[in-house]
Design a protein around this nucleic acid. Structure first.
Lengths: 141, 141
DNA sequence: GTATGTGCAAACTTTTTGCACTTCG
DNA sequence: CGAAGTGCAAAAAGTTTGCACATAC
């Protein structure tokens, strides 16, 4: 599915959102800038062609797009830095309800992943380590 | 391995770090506060017993501990919010050199993971979704 | 025309930094 | 004692908010 301006206009109006130049530019930037842009990357990218966009607007539009499931935040939502005292290989349980992150240690899983990728090269990329984010809810939540 | 004060003192001095009350308190807090504390969680926790710790110190100590591999940052290092226009299930390649995050789409991998966890319950947790972080380097880096 | 969206600037939150003072070894 | 670490306060990032003005439908 190619991402044309027409396409972007439709994505917006399909969600009942007003089609504004800012929204088009921002959505286009999220698709256009590789490597999962930060808000700053997006602002920079847009200002090349259109110097008049307020950063506040960019944040507001991004939030709107997320609410309408046109884009996502990478990693967890609302991220500040978090620290972990467990230094061995391990994975993480993310509770979508209570904002806790628990460690999940499972050596067999590591073996399974290593086996899986042994025969499956990712072109242009050299794998060092896996961390699986397991998203869900704790029963108590 | 139980985490005693003695143990913490040794961890620090083994790395050639001076053993200060602040470092002990912070390391103890990282171990003691569950769910991967934020810097703020740590500051709060420490101030219960010891109101005189500067937040600047906490950040500096955390950095030192990370440099000496006594703790880790969760998710990516130095995180600001990042946005992703790909809405389907997918995984991420994290380049430790160049700070880019690329999408990695692999339906077979999803199947493998789902199969793996089908027979392996995580007690008290209900899984909704997996995201695998594949850390490594791009050849070009 | 009106509900919705944008610009701007101020405020807030989280993190970093510089420098004088203190402490560990 | 001297190098390393801490406190404090100011500044830098990154993000949010309120309100008057502008625009899509």
């Amino acid at each position: 599915m190619k991402t044309t301006i027409e396409n972007i206009r439709n994505q917006l109006s399909d969600k009942g959102l007003k089609v504004t130049p800012q929204r088009i530019a921002i959505l286009e930037a999220v698709y256009g800038v590789g490597g999962h842009p930060t808000a700053d990357n997006i602002i920079e990218h847009i200002r090349k062609n259109n110097p008049n966009i307020a950063s506040g607007t960019v944040y507001k539009v991004l939030d709107t797009l997320i609410e309408n499931k046109l884009i996502r935040r990478v990693t967890t939502d609302r991220d500040v830095m978090r620290y972990d005292g467990v230094m061995g290989k391990h994975h993480h349980l993310y509770c979508t309800e209570c904002d806790l992150i628990e460690d999940y240690i499972d050596e067999e899983l590591d073996t399974v992943l290593r086996e899986y990728f042994k025969n499956r090269e990712i072109k242009g990329f050299h794998i060092k380590e896996f961390v699986l984010q397991i998203k869900g809810t704790f029963d108590k939540c």
